[in-house]
Design a binder for these strands. Structure first.
Lengths: 337, 337
DNA sequence: AAAATTTGCGCAATCGTTTGTGCAGCCATA
DNA sequence: TATGGCTGCACAAACGATTGCGCAAATTTT
């Protein structure tokens, strides 16, 4: 009922000016010890808490980071956001959330609202169909820095953090080679995706390291739909060379591929092995988990992206010193194998 | 570089007062058509956007909801938050996020920060070890309404939304009975949990409906640890009556129980059947998914809780008309069975 | 034509906090 | 004793928008 106490109130009760009270609370050296203690005592007594909205307004700073990402309920993103929130909180920043649901229009709207809320900075993972980046360009005018993570735009001067699939892929293929597999299929994603190209590069590198020839007909691009996976599987299983192992684009693809193999009467881990890229939690609970997974460290990506953003905000990093950080992915063996 | 345009700037350029510009932009009837159009035209040209922080400050309203929950990366919560965000966004509210990591101290700190950020309202799912509710009581002084969801405190005058496990449990047990099972074990949670008691009640009700006797020795409370589950399983499997079906507290418990059963040489869905409460995504990918799951509708819980909060904020609901909404859980058959 | 009403706009306060500046009184140094 | 430098505080502006009130001019009513 009674409004929260303000600096003015404290000032009135102590016959001081608001400025003195403010300085006293901030331990300004020019305020005498006596008054300082008086003020602080009364502040405690009244349970004074500064009105942040006033401070935000006055300082043109909100200590708030905006996060825009496609879908919270995807395990990858909820892990990333967890890293973001933890890192932000350590620096007393709060986190404002918006999901685009992979819709570019919604994304644009959210970015607009966040801009109006005057977030200090933005962390963004793009919606699938975002092709127009005007709403991000606009943020420069408002001096709101953006750090992209995971799904990054095809732009020049941006900060970003992303996982590099190449390293993990090299390790994955190397593992399979080491286990004696010689004909390894890869169910890849759309060729325009950086992530797909990185997988291809990783595949080639691993083969070269063993002085083996890279066979492009074993690396199939798909649209990542269930049907696409099944078609790719069909092609691979009818390949003139006998495919004994498969690298799947992600766990969902892997599951569909496994299912197709089962339908064809193949025995998993005997006739054919699977390696995937981790994006399902608890893959240990899966019926036929891949024997290994390339981990993309979503939590760490969130952490790093936030750390960069905070460094920019604190002035440690100049705005135009574009940070482009790739986190190496890494092969992780399935538990219990 | 140039600061975003303000109302004052527009006023200066048109030789008007700030108040006139403000009213013109809001289509105030007392502003002449000519000036109104002039103002709006210039605003568009300068790409004027109101400074929300100023408005927040002035109106003592931030159009922001705070969310405090234990762990973002848990599927249940990320689904809930998705519902919250969607609902909030429809009313042009933003969502400020904080995870307690199931730590009461952290929860308290987050609530404090959110209060200082002057969120309009709070949505809270409690940390496990929260016993002191002082930080929530304090919010009343600040007139910040709170709606709890799922993990609700043991307090009198609060708003909350929670799933009632009873209905789903009745259905689960009824299903097992219908399939001919007569000795049904239940691996329950700590007895002090409301959710555990609801499961017990549901179990009893289902038995009574078939005029069967309820056997308390088949309903075992556990601490929900892996070891607790295994001990319960041991007790159940050595029960004097032959247990042919088990209701597990949740999917994690279910998995552990299944594993134990397998170790004992039992065949799942033949020697023994499992029913659980859904909290793992993609349970269809699990090795031995429960044949059915009690769905708790996290997304809907989030929606409903947010709707209540928004109604309170808009004045549609009086603060002290305490909404206590329970969403009935419901049994969902596993896909493909 | 005088009175009443409406129209169109400006003035000024307000929200709570921070911060540059000014001004006493005090002490110390020359 | 005059000069200078501290010390301790108050004054006032500023951030950007909203809003009650007032006042003149234009319009309508009587």
């Amino acid at each position: 009922m009674p409004n929260p106490p303000t600096i003015k109130e404290i000032a009135r009760k102590l016959n001081l000016s608001a400025s003195t009270v403010s300085r006293a609370l901030h331990n300004h050296p020019r305020i005498g010890l006596k008054t300082r203690l008086q003020v602080q005592a009364l502040a405690r007594e009244l349970q004074y808490e500064p009105n942040q909205t006033a401070i935000f307004f006055q300082q043109k700073k909100t200590f708030t980071l905006g996060i825009v990402l496609p879908e919270l309920s995807e395990a990858f993103f909820s892990a990333a956001i967890s890293g973001i929130e933890d890192t932000a909180n350590k620096s007393n920043y709060m986190v404002l959330l918006g999901q685009s649901h992979d819709d570019a229009t919604r994304e644009e709207k959210i970015v607009g609202i966040m801009k109006n809320h005057r977030v200090d900075g933005l962390l963004v993972s793009l919606a699938k169909n975002t092709v127009n980046y005007a709403h991000f360009e606009m943020l420069r005018k408002y001096n709101i820095p953006v750090v992209f993570f995971d799904r990054i735009p095809d732009m020049q001067h941006i900060h970003y953090v992303a996982a590099n699939m190449e390293s993990g892929t090299v390790q994955a293929v190397a593992l399979l080679l080491q286990q004696g597999h010689r004909v390894i299929g890869m169910i890849n994603g759309p060729e325009k995706l950086i992530a797909s190209r990185q997988r291809t590069t990783g595949y080639r590198t691993a083969m070269q390291q063993q002085r083996l020839k890279y066979d492009a007909t074993l690396n199939l691009p798909t649209d990542l739909t269930r049907e696409g996976t099944r078609q790719a599987m069909q092609q691979l299983l009818s390949h003139k060379r006998k495919v004994t192992a498969i690298v799947a684009f992600n766990d969902y693809v892997s599951q569909d591929a496994v299912q197709y193999a089962l339908e064809q009467g193949l025995q998993i881990n005997k006739d054919i092995c699977f390696v995937s890229y981790a994006n399902l939690p608890l893959s240990s609970y899966m019926a036929f988990p891949p024997m290994a997974s390339v981990e993309q460290y979503p939590y760490q990506q969130g952490q790093q992206a936030t750390a960069i953003l905070l460094d920019i905000l604190s002035g440690k990093l100049p705005q135009d010193d574009y940070q482009q950080l790739t986190i190496d992915s890494r092969l992780v063996m399935a538990p219990g194998r």
